[in-house]
Amino acid sequence: MRILVTGGAGFIGSHIADLALHAGHEVAVLDNLSSGSRANVPGGAALHVADLRDREAVRAVMADFRPDVVNHQAAQASVSVSVREPLLDAETNVLGTLHLLEACREFGVGRFVFASTGGAIYGDLPEGERADEHRSPRPYSPYATSKLAGETYLATYRAQYGLDYSVLRYANVYGPRQNPHGEAGVVAIFCERALAGEALRIHGMHAPGDGGCVRDYVYVGDVARANLRASLGELSAQLLNIGTGQPTTTAELAARLTRVSGHSVPIHDAPPRPGDVARSLLDPAAYRAQFGDPTPLDEGLAQTVAWFAQRLPEKS
């Protein structure tokens, strides 16, 4: 199988590329390196430096590699950036996706895997509820809206042009290689700051000091496995939530991470952030039926902290 991974020099995409190569598939990466790194691209995967907003550049990559599957991870992934700059968000997440879809149509790509958001697309959830795949989307940020637009275009492209696809709605993904400066991810931010002995900031859910928003944290290895299965057409449904169903407040995350890392640092309360939903939690029943139990949070945090700790000498 020839698999093109967009965003393959970034956090999630590089793990997918690794896994696909180890499974014996031919892999190419399309990335503009705005937040990803050449060092993340696994050996054996060809890197094409191109921006999704450049239609001709996207077409050239597709013409050169001729993939069987496009696994689309590249995105403007920050909720706060989308609130500040909704046009920038749409240029990447809507027009960029359309450029890929048009190239898929031109070059006869058979399958498209789309990284969507479960953490933002369902909106605020009432206490005690988890969002399953049948829950109606209620996007609260331009980022969530752009991802829903991508899902809708995929349904249209299947109806009009026969393109097979899978949509994976991620909870809050964390793990090794996450960029605390270029990609969304409080776990990466907390890891870097805790290991450096710097204070952690807990942005409130409704007000400073209330413990912060409730999130569902899912380990990147679990996400990569689901993506490979989706790329091979092995999922039982077109839409799948990728999460754990375990609620964790930002304050609880900080406590668990400092315990796992062995670094005690000051924790400061901060105001809520624009665009953040208060409570985001996925129903993992469909995921568990296909993949078993997801990685426990403390286990995933330990692996993530270990990766960040190994990088400390590089900064000295």
Rank of each mutant, 00 (worst) to 15 (best):
L125M: 12
S166M: 01
G204C: 04
Q160M: 11
V173A: 13
D164H: 00
R138P: 09
A188S: 13
P139H: 00
E183Q: 15
G182R: 15
P208A: 05
Y143S: 06
A196Q: 15
G197K: 10
A144C: 09
F190V: 13
A120M: 07
P176R: 09
R201I: 02
Y170T: 15
I202M: 02
A194I: 07
I189T: 14
C191P: 09
S136A: 14
Y143G: 06
A188D: 06
R135Q: 06
H203G: 01
P139M: 07
K147E: 12
G162Q: 03
G175K: 01
R201G: 04
C191R: 09
L163H: 00
A188Q: 11
N179C: 12
A188E: 05
D210H: 02
Y122D: 05
G211N: 07
A155Q: 13
E183Y: 05
G185R: 11
G211Y: 05
P137S: 04
R193F: 09
G211P: 08
H134D: 11
R138Q: 15
A149G: 04
G150N: 05
R215Y: 06
E183P: 00
G209F: 02
P137I: 06
G182D: 08
A194M: 06
E183M: 07
S136N: 10
G150I: 11
K147I: 13
R138F: 00
C213Q: 13
P142H: 06
S141C: 10
A159T: 12
F190H: 09
Y122Q: 14
G197V: 14
A131W: 08
G209T: 01
A120Y: 07
G185P: 10
G182E: 09
V167Q: 01
G197D: 13
A199D: 08
G185F: 12
L125V: 14
G197Q: 12
S166T: 11
H203T: 00
G197M: 11
C213N: 09
L195P: 05
G162I: 07
P142T: 05
R193D: 09
